[in-house]
Amino acid sequence: MTGFRPTILAFCCNWCSYAGADLAGVNRLQMPTNVNVVRVMCSASVKPEYVIKALSQGIDGVLVLGCHIGDCHYMTGNHRTAKRIPLTAKVLETVGIDSRRVKLDWVSAAEGDKFQQVITDFVEVVTGLGPNPLREVRF
């Protein structure tokens, strides 16, 4: 799989993970550049529909990052995410998309190095999985 660079979508919550990403940038931590960060107000606003749509249009991996459980700006927002995203991954596995292409993780505003770690690991996993099979499928 030489030369394959996955396209990855990362939904980052405004209050924690986006600030974490910012901190990683300020600290000049090196990480793969094929991640497109989408800033959302809360990880709970990432509905399963968006994840499914991204994957069905050929994105290789979707990363959902939110505040740690208990730290949500909207009190119980990330509880919702914690239930929705695993379900989405499982349903995608049922119809034939590897569930490792969807990942949920918690990154707080102080965890720039964790952000780097999560991105690096995820890009590695998705590179190993190869391109999204739905990219070839034309409807």
């Binding site: 529909e49 499914i52 749509k53 069905s56 379900l87 349903v91 995608l92 119809v95 409807f139």
Partner: peptide, 24 residues
Amino acid sequence: KTFTPEKGIPPGFAFHLIRSIHLA
């Protein structure tokens, strides 16, 4: 139209999956 294109059939891979998740 964000999730189902206005024009053309079939509506894509996502259509029935979104329905499944919604009814889960």
